[in-house]
Design a protein around this nucleic acid. Structure first.
Lengths: 128, 128
DNA sequence: TGATGATAGATGTAAATGCATCTAATATCG
DNA sequence: CGATATTAGATGCATTTACATCTATCATCA
């Protein structure tokens, strides 16, 4: 918990220093960008990011207001929506990644050998 | 990050289910209870819990309003304060612990062998 | 000593979060 | 079919958090 606290603070600080949005934005944009057609249902994003439903709903509002995603109706189920990433969204994700990747390397990568990193993930995966 | 998310959610849910306050309350009460005279300076709590200064200041407000701690002036430095845990604060910490300990065992302990837990802490300690 | 800078902690305001609940649509089952 | 339950997602409201800044005190040093 402490390690996560420290690392997240360091990474968020790097993002802020380069005028980038919070990490949660990245997580959502990344899930969308890597998905088949650049679109997911809100509940799918929820599952993948572990964001709470009501938080995600409002995060999508913010992303939409910034033109990074847009909402569309889901034809097969009147209750559902699609969240579609826009070109601007993809662009921004890439820009964030240039900072984020460096940040990961600086704060995490350089402190762990490959096999150590694998050991951590192997053990922590039990909780997922 | 994901593991922490899941575990914290599970633990907080256990606390909520037994009408206990959030985990941050426990962290502060615990640091106070284990300290020499049941009192610490705000900045000391801050260092130990990694809470942000402005968050801690208000968390102490809440604890004080509930009668779990009280603030006193720090004689040697007019800017400083003491945060002193009350009997009610110690009592509550113990009550929370009965739930928290069980929760840790349920969600974490039973999924890791002793040496595995040590391996994780050993590796994650590098980030502290 | 007196000016300047640093530190401890508090706080106003804006934004995000948590909780409960709502609406609209679909599923289930007598 | 119709009543009831369930699900997807949105939202009102209270609490909490983040950011910036403030006050008061202490430290430093010319």
């Amino acid at each position: 918990m402490r390690a996560r606290e420290r690392l997240l603070a360091a990474i968020e600080a790097d993002l802020k220093a380069t005028a980038m949005p919070p990490l949660a934005w990245y997580d959502v944009l990344w899930e969308l960008a890597r998905s088949q057609d650049g679109m997911l249902r809100p509940y799918e994003i929820e599952e993948r990011t572990l964001l709470a439903q009501y938080n995600l709903s409002r995060l999508i509002d913010r992303l939409e207001k910034e033109g990074l995603v847009r909402r569309e109706n889901f034809a097969e189920d009147g209750r559902g929506r699609w969240v579609v990433i826009t070109d601007a969204g993809r662009k921004l994700r890439e820009r964030i990644w240039t900072v984020y990747a460096r940040s990961i390397e600086t704060h995490i990568g350089c402190k762990l050998a490959e096999n150590e990193a694998k050991a951590i993930t192997g053990l922590l995966d039990r909780f997922l």
